[in-house]
Nucleic acid binder design. Sequence first.
DNA 1: TGACAGGAAAATA
DNA 2: TATTTTCCTGTC
Length: 276
Amino acid sequence: MQISVSGNFSLQKTLLCGQIFRVFEMKNGFIVPFNRSFLKLLQEKDKIYCTSYGESVSHGEVKKFLGINDDIDEINGELIRKAAKFLQIIQYGKGLRIMRQSPYETTISFLFSMRNSIPVIKRKLNLLSEIAGEGIKIDGTMYYFFPGSETLKNLDAQRIKKLQLGFREKWFVDFVQNYDEAFFARILGNSFEEKEKKLLGIKGIGGKVAHCILLFSMNEFSAFPVDVWIKRGMYELFDVKGSSKEVTKAGRRMFGKYAGYAQEYIFYYLRNFLSS
DNA sequence: TGACAGGAAAATA
DNA sequence: TATTTTCCTGTC
């Protein structure tokens, strides 16, 4: 399958800007899980070459998954109108898009993420997929689908222990026992505040993680997750300081309906050009 | 080898 | 209500 994109889409930035954990970097291109399939993706200029393995995936689904349909000129224009500084910030992150991931998987991913580094989170998510999920062989290597709620509900304690989640384990167990994909499908149509409230009701999920889930998997582009990097960025770039909650509020107020994109641009800018 | 990492909950004040 | 402490593991 071949997808045409504008000159201002970057597969690399989209997949590596920190929003998705389970990305396998290959010599040329990437392998990324999507539902019950894996996508092998490669970008050459304004073309994305996509091969799917497992259940068939449509052209439209891939575009939606990668955020290719987003009107990026409108988004960038809006951010620059809100704060002229984005003219500069966007230059660095130019081409990244917010993906549309599965809320169920995203929630578990960010439950694992707290006080953990990206390599560790990746390893634990891959291990979970491996011990619980089914896999498929691509070019001689096994890749495992992320397990669904039916599988995770029945995961025995011994296997869960193998994940070595530490203090996160009780929250993971509580989550898989009490929530499933249908829960997210039910609240998808709710207001931002309603969804945020429902997510905060899940044990182990606070403001930062709730906003990550809203932004990366629930079509809420005004979500504004604040971690230590964003806190630093908001202070250095916009002179905003305060608690995470306060910075989230300030970011949403300052950047409006695309605050989530603003957050990703700031994050990308910081991680790549101000890291010291 | 001890501090600390892309948080949240419980305890304390 | 605001601040501090604790939580398990991996990494350097």
